[in-house]
Each structure stands twice: as C-alpha cells, then as structure tokens.
Nucleic acid binder design. Structure first.
Lengths: 227, 227
DNA sequence: CCGTCGCGTCAGGGTTGCGTCAAAGACTGT
DNA sequence: ACAGTCTTTGACGCAACCCTGACGCGACGG
C-alpha cells in the first residue's frame, strides 16, 4: 500500500486530505509542524509527502531541504502563496510539484498519482516478479526460467502458457481461459494444444514429468500452478 | 547537455520558450503538431518534453500516450484549459506536470528543472555506467566500446541498439520494444532491421559471431544481453 | 465387464522466423 | 558534385517451432 505523509498546520485541510486519501486506500500519516514531519518521515518512510509551506515552527523550504538530505521521496508542495519566486524556490530546493490553494481535490490526487507513479520503478521492482519453487525459479520481468543454476530455454508459446499459470499461482485456470489468453480469443475448444504444451512444460521443468508436483491437472476443468 | 522537445502550435510561445531555454544552455527541438512531435521524440530522444495540449492534428492526450508507449521521458503539459478534468486526464495518461497558460517563465523553468532532476537517476546510475564482459567493455556515459584495448567504432543505430540491450542486462527485450526504442514508435514489425543490426553488433563484439555468448536470440520473442 | 471420455505421449510435416549476404537508396561532409 | 558511410530492402538456406493425427492409458458409468 502507498504511504502518504501529510504536513499542514490547518486541521481542516489535514482532515479533508486524510479522508480523501484513506477512501482511496492510501495509508496516511499527518504532522502539524516541521519538526514532527521530519521525525515521522524518518520513522515511517512514506512513498510521497504532501507539504504545506506555511508551518508554525520552521520555513517549509527548510523541511524540503531536511528531507532531501537523505531521501528522494516525492514532495508535493501546497501553498497559499501564488508568487512565482516562492514556487521557484521550493522547486529548486527539491520539491517535485507545487499546488496553490485553494486547490481541487481531484487535481491534487492526480498529481499525487503522477508523483507516485514516477517513483515506482526505483523503489519497488525485482522482488515481486520472481516466483520460486524447490525445483525452479521463474522471473517474469526478465522472462527467464532457472533450474539447477542453468537457464531453461522456452519457446514463445511455452513461455506464454507458463506466464498465465504463474500469474494465477494456486488458482485454477480454466482450459477455455488458457486457450484464449495464449492462442487468442477465437480459440476455446482445442484442448489438445494444452495437452501438448503442458507436457513440454512439465518435461522441461518438473523433476518427474509424469508425476507433476507444480503443474497440476484438474480433469475436465483446467490446470493449476502450485509453488 | 539537456535536450528539450517543445511541442506547441503557437509560434510566439515556441519562440519565447526556445529563446529562454537556449539562453540557459538547453538544446531545443521544436514541433508544431503531434505527428512531428512523436517522430522527433523518437529520433532525438529528449531528456524532457514540453507539450501544449491544443494541437492542430491530434489530441494532446494521444501524444502523451504515444510517448508513454515506449519511453518514460518527463512530460510537462501546457494548456489554456483550467478545468480540473483536463488536468486529471492528462496526468493520469502519463504527464508529469501540468501548467496552465498564461504561465510565468520562471515557474515553468523551475518545474522543468524539477522534472529533469527527478529523471536523472534513471539515466546516470553511477554504478552501472560501464558494463564489462570477458570479451569487451561498454561505457554508457562515454558512449564507447572497448575490445582488446582498442575502441570499437559503432554507427548511431548500432550504438542505440546496444544501449537498450545493455540497460536491460539479463532481461529479455521484446522485438517490438527494441524496434520502438531504437527506430521510433511507428515501428514494431520490421524485425529484419533487428536481424541485420544484431548481426553487425555480433560481428563487431562477439569472439565467435556465429555462436554468440552475449547477444542471445530468443526465437519469436526478442533478444537478451548477458555479461 | 465393456464402452466412452479425457488426458498424456510421440513423431512427422508445413510454416515461420532467424542469420547471412549483397546491393540499392539516403545522408553527410568536403 | 562527389565519395564515403550508414540505413534500408530483398533473396535464400536452414533450423526451430507449431500444429496435427494416432495411439495407449486410466477413470468413470452403464
């Protein structure tokens, strides 16, 4: 889940933001002053920061610098000041975006999404795209399958089939669905294709292809991939 | 030097932007319609795009989608429309920032700096700028390839292709993706280009070009660079 | 007990995709 | 205008892949 840190000293604004963000399943922390904000940021490592420049204890630009000293988390600045100088100063200090009050909630959320989307690849890749079993490892991003330390060569159709199954690990995938996802929407009854290619996958990946542990047949229904 | 692509059909705005950007030592390309913009983006690979939504030939959002299909270059949208819906649509389509006209040049430049700064780590990863294999060394920053102590001469297309592959070391890169990143978004089926240029790269870099160890073909899918 | 249905296995043949070479076209700088 | 380089395009041989049909097996139900 995406974690947002909201920093503003006006309770109404904080309340409005928190309600809207939580409704969209963001996880939200809030701070009313700069010192708390910096402490919270360090403790909670938010994925994005929404910062009001007008804080009681310190200059908003100082908060930006304080954050930028150790993190590249996206910072979205809120401010009542429309002056161009203020914007330039905040942006050059390291802010990612600058929204003037009063702002539309839709726009703010869109800018927030843009900021988070940008930061995504840096923060969260590589971990969730590989699936491991005791016999082999599948890397969805690299399109690689490793078995006993060696890469296994798969043909496009084999890979496609494997991909659909792995993306539904533990779930049953109907034969019609498999056929349509791999061979195209006009296929749905050619179950012999499935039999041939499942056999090839098992031969390449299962320790004992005739007694599969991971590519399981559900007779009359479809197939299931288990770790 | 930072390369900027300016897309706007109003000559005055383009002129103002070009003058201001060049004064700050940016390299500037300009397009006055969407089709030209997409072609220029593919040919010149700008570091940031400034896009006016009101174009004569196509919807600005379509331009965003056309770019996002193959690149993550920062897109800064200009628009006369203040409507919240327009902003949300553009941002969710993949824009990075949205500035309404009339805009202050200082602010625009500051937002441009912010966008470029953010994108830097993707381009300038300190640790991955040189990739070594037992046969040759690729220096992404210096755009140089060294083999047996001597620099290898590569044509622009050869280099571009090598660059995309090396940036995805170990990962499979689909032929469509390769074509679009190297030749531009309107390419995607001309796989013969790939065959010709892969052959040239292998001839120049592989110890045994007919049995490549680093530039590996995945039939029907794409190519993979391995150390 | 036997017929049917669904699944696994195997091997052959048509088709596709890849590597290679060569030549024509486009571009650049002199 | 010319020469050199780079890009595009076409043709061909070869290997790999995908489809197809045939057969055997086990499960289930009549």
């Amino acid at each position: 889940m995406t974690r947002v840190l909201v920093i503003d000293d006006e309770p109404q604004i904080v309340r409005a933001l928190v309600i809207n963000l939580k409704a969209r399943t963001y996880e939200v922390d809030a701070a009313h002053d700069g010192a708390t904000a910096l402490r919270l940021a360090a403790a909670r490592h938010p994925d994005v920061v929404v910062l009001d420049l007008g804080l009681p204890d310190m200059d908003g630009v100082e908060v930006i610098r304080g954050l930028r000293g150790w993190t590249r988390v996206p910072i979205l600045v809120l401010s009542a000041r429309h002056s161009s100088d203020e914007k330039v100063e905040a942006l050059d200090a390291g802010a990612d975006d600058y929204v003037t009050k009063p702002f539309g909630m839709d726009e703010l959320l869109a800018r927030l999404r843009a900021a988070v989307r940008r930061a995504e690849p840096t923060g969260g890749d590589e971990d969730a795209v590989t699936v491991e079993t005791e016999a082999f490892t599948v890397d969805l991003a690299a399109k690689k399958v490793n078995r006993d330390g060696k890469d296994v060569r798969l043909t496009p159709t084999e890979w496609h089939l494997l991909e659909v199954l792995v993306r539904n690990t533990g779930r049953l995938v109907g034969q019609k669905q498999l056929l349509q996802e791999v061979w195209g929407p006009s296929y749905g009854t050619e179950t012999n294709y499935l039999r041939v290619y499942m056999a090839q996958l098992r031969r390449k990946l299962e320790a004992d292809p005739s007694h599969p542990k991971h590519f399981i047949t559900e007779p009359g229904m479809g197939y299931r991939f288990e770790k």
